[in-house]
Design a protein around this nucleic acid. Structure first.
Lengths: 341, 341
DNA sequence: GCCGAATGTGGAAGCGCTTCCACGAATGTC
DNA sequence: GACATTCGTGGAAGCGCTTCCACATTCGGC
């Protein structure tokens, strides 16, 4: 260890081999847990590895194994406020936790525009990553095609728009939207509005779809006046709620397709002098942390992220290992009752 | 392109060389923009590259150049809610934008505990990354030492606790705390409280320090009863504010060391029937997006993240290229007046 | 018109690793 | 006790790339 910042010369396989009194090949076998090694050899190597503080050079290894032990989380989003979305935060956290078990690393990539998507396509081809998890996908995004064509193992976070055979993990958003709305109906609410998510994202579409289905099943019709579109952000929710209040002052419930939006809606409602849940019942979606701390605490649909993120990595890993390409899972959502409805 | 997901065999340097009718060495020169290549050779190679859709194999290149074109953003944090912190989100966004210009990639790593910090140390040694940006550092963290000892180029987001010579980029947190408090004093507020950040993080310490300095300069004393410690989260801010209100019902202003905490404080204040800014003036810190949307919009200290993230990458790149090891920058903060004070 | 310098190019070495292959030793089988 | 197997090991090739070195060329200066 030198005084200046010079990187200490890293030991190589040969040095370990020399010290352990075996060949490079044997060291490699030990390091890679090959069974074809005698106990003594193994111990000698392990001792040498420990003494030398040997760490394999990942580049050299990747060059021959064609594996990088790196997977990419790609955000198809014009980066504005995605990062602040608690849903994104949960995914990253869950993924990084699931990956901590393995020795895979998580590369975060954002694709602001077509040019960047192209850059990511290039990056993913040629084995710079072993696989990709794609989230925050929009209807027109070409990335799944590009990646699939390049043969890059791929798992989508959220089902694809078309029925294309690709692996994905999703929450049951349709079911969630339905349950939330049914709950509002069961409460005896008469004029139930909704703030949807963006309609170019599948979660936005599906939750809205579930809402409509519940309404129709109860013999009601979806009234256009009771629908406003948001963008999954708090500000967007506040705006949409204002729109709704403007058009339909008599509404007495609202299903909001994400918690951040619901928080925004809450604020608008309170600013307009409505009590929650007295005048207006509010049900959100996500069960984000903020749902517990906002005022009143939010009744919301929980999606089992704890289940979903390990599933994504599992599906991806399995695919990397040559498993099925289009295995998918849909996870159940459930209602978490708090004070807003 | 085969029908199944088989990765199309990627062209290598040799194939390009063959097609262009030159040697491997020449192709490499063209790809790496070496000037020592004739115009014809360059054109021939470029044509071949385009036809073959050649992309260099990064692993092979890294093996010889000792560069990975990857930098790591390391979060030294028991991952709980860091990701939801808008400050973190802004840093990631800024960094990934700054890096988009180059062809560097951002690896996100979290170090939940000592074991993981060790893992990261191993990862960073042996050139798996060209450099590290370390954020969310706590007083006892060993990571800077480990990394510095390994000779890994390093830039801290926030100054180190001791005066150790290491590159960092920080906001002028002391100055910010002072300005915020002076502003409250100038308003004629008599009993000014503070909700601090965690005191094992430098930003928490410095902002508190600035607060105290302003008080003393105005001939006042820091009263322990007017100080509560938070953890930079909204829930923590709400809790601390409740504590404060409990101890000092007569307070008429509070400097809160982060915007998420300020939002929590706002909620507590309103729940306690205090008007803001009528009864209690509130000044936050960060100028996060939420500062504009909360009610009332938050008067807060802005730190110039737009300046800071490019600076971090610049400092790191410069260090990677063999530049100075301990160059640092402190960026000015400024007050953003909104409605809460 | 000759010599040294500048210039473009190809050959070849080697980055650190995995893995195929061959080989000798140990084991099992009749 | 002779043979076929298995097992552990080392040698060596080679992953795709960069770069040093040597070798033509071409050029300008006298």
């Amino acid at each position: 260890m030198t005084v200046s910042g010079t990187r200490t010369a890293a030991p190589t396989l040969d040095e370990v081999a020399l010290r352990a009194g075996v060949s490079r090949a044997t060291v490699s076998r030990v390091v890679n847990d090959s069974p074809r090694v005698s106990a003594e050899a193994r111990e000698a190597v392990q001792a040498a590895v420990a003494e030398l503080r040997y760490v394999p050079n990942r580049m050299a290894r990747s060059l021959v194994t064609r594996r990088t032990d790196t997977i990419a989380l790609v955000l198809s989003e014009p980066d504005t406020q995605v990062f602040s979305d608690p849903f994104f935060a949960s995914i990253v956290r869950g993924l990084s936790r699931a990956l901590a078990e393995t020795d895979l690393n998580l590369v975060l990539l954002t694709a602001r525009d077509a040019r960047e998507q192209e850059k990511i396509g290039r990056y993913a081809r040629r084995g710079h990553v072993d696989g990709v998890i794609l989230m925050s996908l929009h209807r027109e995004d070409q990335l799944p095609e590009v990646l699939a064509a390049a043969g890059v193992p791929l798992v989508l976070c959220g089902r694809p728009f078309d029925g294309r055979p690709v692996a994905y993990v999703d929450a049951d958003n349709v079911g969630g939207g339905r349950v939330a709305t049914e709950f509002l109906i069961a409460q005896g609410r008469r004029r139930i509005a909704t703030v949807t998510g963006p309609q170019d994202m599948i979660a936005g579409v599906d939750r809205f779809q579930g809402h409509r289905a519940a309404l129709e099943q109860a013999g009601r019709r979806l009234e256009p006046g009771l629908v406003a579109h948001g963008d999954f952000t708090e500000a967007g929710g506040a705006r949409a709620m204002a729109e709704l209040l403007d058009r339909e002052p008599g509404l007495d419930a609202v299903f909001v397709a994400s918690d951040p939006m619901a928080v925004g809606a809450l604020r608008t409602l309170q600013a307009a002098g409505r009590t929650v849940p007295g005048d207006v019942a509010v049900v959100g979606f996500d069960d984000a942390a903020v749902a517990q701390t906002c005022d009143p605490p939010l009744t919301t649909m929980a999606q089992p992220l704890d289940e979903m993120t390990p599933l994504m990595t599992e599906l991806l890993l399995q695919q990397i290992d040559g498993g099925p390409q289009a295995d998918s899972r849909v996870c159940a959502t459930h209602l978490v009752r708090r004070a807003s409805a």
